[in-house]
Amino acid sequence: MKVAVMGAGAVGCYFGGMLARAGHPVTLIARPQHVQAIEREGLRLETKGFDERVRLAATTEPAGAKDADLVLFSVKSPGTEETGRQLMPFLRDDTLVLCLQNGVDNAERLRAVLPRHEVAAAVVYVATEMAGPGHLKHHGRGELVIEPARASERVAQALRDAGVPAEVSSNVRGALWLKLILNCAYNAISAIAQRPYGENVAGAGIWEVMHDVVDECVAVAQADGVQLPADPHLATRKLVESMPSQCSSTAQDLARRKPTEIDYLNGYVVRRGQALGIATPANRVLWALVKLIEGKH
């Protein structure tokens, strides 16, 4: 498959890099410092199993997606609509755009600006960071759960062949909500403390705060008609076992003085709670504190 990665940060570079390593032609559409480093030396993929430099194309321009069979769409949630509009002129009619984004409504928002194209949501479970220009560091996991679409099975098989566990599920909405709940429990606390998950859960009262956050999220999800695919409290407990050294993407954004996605995580739960008449005080506090820190930058 010809693959383009729109917004090639830590998530996009991991999945794009794995597909390129397996022999697929991949173009990363990324920030200039990453493009320059990748053009010089390739993308460094540092994982627990290997540390290699993978050769692939890189550009700063949306035209890098021209004629792609698959676009991995991994921009930050606030940029979904604008980036979709930039991408539209370069998509074929049969290109599959796969959303690898945090939050639960990005695919829906992207379909609104790409009405003639097939957009599928995916749930991403991976711990990664950009350790430097053109240098992707993988801390753990790496699964994808993909929404059914015309090319979903083909894409899932290509990912599996590339060493990425991938499945197609008819309940991606529930899986997205479960991922949202995990993000709401972990991301803001990691951002406020600027520490990894394993250190944070050892703090006094932190598990109790996370339990309250999860309870609120579950109440909102149930009121919204979402069928969660697993016990969210158990999933929250188990997450730290698989990625204890991970700092959240929200923490990484604050550390780099960049805008966060908190409005699409805890903030989204607060807004949906308001619309559905459900109180979400724990989520509101975490959202407000991250916004306060974000405002200092």
Score class of each variant (00 low, 15 high):
181 I>A: 01
176 L>G: 04
48 K>F: 10
264 Y>E: 07
287 W>T: 00
16 G>W: 06
39 E>P: 05
180 L>M: 15
58 A>T: 13
207 W>A: 13
25 P>Y: 12
240 V>A: 11
144 L>F: 07
163 G>P: 02
163 G>T: 03
170 S>C: 00
150 R>M: 00
115 P>K: 12
218 V>W: 02
149 A>K: 06
45 L>N: 05
232 P>L: 13
258 K>L: 12
78 P>L: 06
222 Q>L: 09
17 G>R: 09
296 K>R: 14
206 I>V: 15
177 W>H: 08
65 A>D: 09
214 V>P: 09
244 P>C: 09
193 A>L: 13
84 G>Y: 07
36 Q>L: 10
69 D>M: 09
40 R>K: 15
107 A>T: 12
166 A>I: 04
137 K>F: 04
3 V>W: 05
183 N>S: 04
270 V>C: 15
215 D>P: 01
179 K>P: 01
261 E>A: 02
115 P>I: 12
112 A>M: 14
185 A>I: 05
149 A>N: 07
81 E>T: 07
73 F>V: 08
79 G>P: 02
285 V>D: 00
168 V>M: 05
41 E>G: 14
287 W>S: 00
13 C>V: 04
30 A>F: 10
222 Q>S: 09
110 L>P: 05
138 H>Q: 09
206 I>C: 02
230 A>V: 03
94 D>A: 13
208 E>Q: 11
193 A>N: 06
46 E>Q: 15
67 D>F: 11
236 T>V: 11
184 C>M: 05
152 S>C: 02
190 S>L: 01
192 I>C: 01
149 A>I: 04
158 A>T: 02
239 L>R: 04
295 G>Y: 05
47 T>M: 10
45 L>A: 07
76 K>A: 08
221 A>C: 10
53 R>C: 04
14 Y>R: 12
113 V>Y: 07
154 R>G: 12
223 A>Q: 11
63 A>G: 07
3 V>I: 15
179 K>N: 06
248 S>T: 03
90 F>A: 02
16 G>M: 10
26 V>C: 07
122 A>F: 05
129 E>S: 06
176 L>Y: 04
232 P>A: 14
33 Q>H: 15
160 R>I: 08
274 Q>D: 12
42 G>R: 08
36 Q>F: 02
213 V>T: 05
224 D>F: 03
210 M>Q: 15
44 R>I: 05
265 L>R: 01
171 N>W: 08
111 R>E: 14
228 L>D: 09
208 E>A: 08
113 V>C: 07
155 V>K: 01
187 N>G: 02
176 L>P: 04
27 T>L: 06
266 N>L: 00
130 M>I: 15
240 V>G: 08
212 D>Y: 01
261 E>T: 00
18 M>I: 08
32 P>C: 08
256 R>I: 00
284 R>Y: 03
144 L>E: 04
36 Q>A: 15
252 Q>S: 03
10 A>G: 13
80 T>P: 03
86 Q>L: 14
117 H>T: 13
211 H>R: 15
100 L>T: 15
191 A>G: 14
75 V>C: 09
4 A>Q: 12
43 L>I: 11
